[in-house]
């Protein structure tokens, strides 16, 4: 084939992949390595002490505040993931199974639009919605549903969960939708022809086949939410702050980058370990189901 003149396929591919690949290595892999390295250094007032030390990690694990923030962050991210994926599944199912094929892309477009619009302003608006004199309380008071404003929905972990579940909704819907679209519809017919009811067909055929999408949704929500500091800052109140707020404070306010780096490493390792466990458990579960 004349298209293969001169260079071999492997060389051509490598040459093309080189610019984005090198960019990712230089600006992602190397910086991540630098964070890891920095976490083993220490800050001595204004100078950086470059001798290897475990001081930051000792401090991180012995200081109750850091562990409290980490534990809370994992709980909040876990709750956000659970809520987001549970709310998202029926939507993905609806669009995949009940919307006419030519309408599907319109639905997906409508679902993704809020995700692309200014994140900062969306978070701030949740503060307006959930506040003491907020939209929700005024509305509920107006229709006589409640007698006094609800206070458990702002400046605490609940507010963080609601706001993040809103922000990450499309991220959960899309992978589940893609997995559902791939399901061969004749399998569902076969299941019904063989006498299974709608519910059994769903739990024994649809759900196991949609599992890869659900796992992708879990990971794509769980991992980024741990790093959010805007939502806790705006709607979380003092008891809704997360580990990312502490990382940000260490870097930008306390000028203790090594401590911030150590906390970032600990947060990322915790999230990765939990994610790995989720993947392993679901893999085992779906194998047993099959």
């Amino acid at each position: 084939m004349s298209a293969g003149q001169g260079l071999s396929e492997a060389k051509k591919g490598l040459l093309l992949a080189a610019p984005p690949g090198l960019y990712a290595i230089l600006l992602l892999a190397v910086p991540l390595g630098a964070v890891l390295l920095l976490s083993f250094w220490s800050q001595d007032f204004l100078t950086l002490d470059r001798t290897f030390t475990l001081k930051n990690y000792r401090e991180a694990f012995s200081e109750p505040l850091y562990m409290l923030l980490l534990g809370r962050s994992l709980l909040i991210s876990g709750a956000v993931t659970l809520v987001t994926v549970l709310l998202a599944f029926p939507i993905a199912y609806f669009v995949s199974f009940h919307v006419r094929p030519e309408r599907k892309s319109l639905w997906i477009f409508l679902i993704t639009i809020p995700f692309w619009t200014s994140y900062l302003i969306r978070v701030f608006l949740w503060k307006v919605i959930l506040g003491y004199n907020g939209v929700l309380n005024t509305a509920l008071l107006g229709v006589g549903f409640i007698d006094e404003p609800l206070t458990f929905i702002l400046y605490n972990a609940n507010a963080v969960v609601i706001t993040l579940a809103h922000a990450f909704a499309p991220f959960a819907i899309l992978p589940i939708f893609v997995a559902l679209e791939k399901i061969d519809r004749s399998l569902l017919e076969a299941s019904r022809d063989l006498g299974e009811g709608t519910v059994r067909t769903f739990t024994r055929v649809t759900l196991p086949l949609a599992m890869p999408g659900v796992v992708a949704a879990i990971l794509i929500v769980f991992i980024p939410t741990i790093g959010d500091y805007v939502t806790p800052d705006l709607v979380g109140g003092p008891n809704g702050l997360m580990i990312a707020n502490m990382i940000q404070t260490q870097f930008l306010k306390l000028n203790n980058a090594p401590m911030g780096a150590a906390l970032a490493v600990i947060a990322m390792v915790s999230v990765s370990v939990i994610s790995l466990l989720i993947v392993l458990v679901t893999m085992r579960w779906s194998r047993r189901g099959a």
Binding site: V35, I223, P224, G227, A261, M268
Partner: peptide
């Protein structure tokens, strides 16, 4: 990747 990690690592 959490965006804070991208921000922090480039800052470092």
């Amino acid at each position: 990747l959490p965006e804070i990690i991208v921000g922090v690592s480039l800052l470092v």
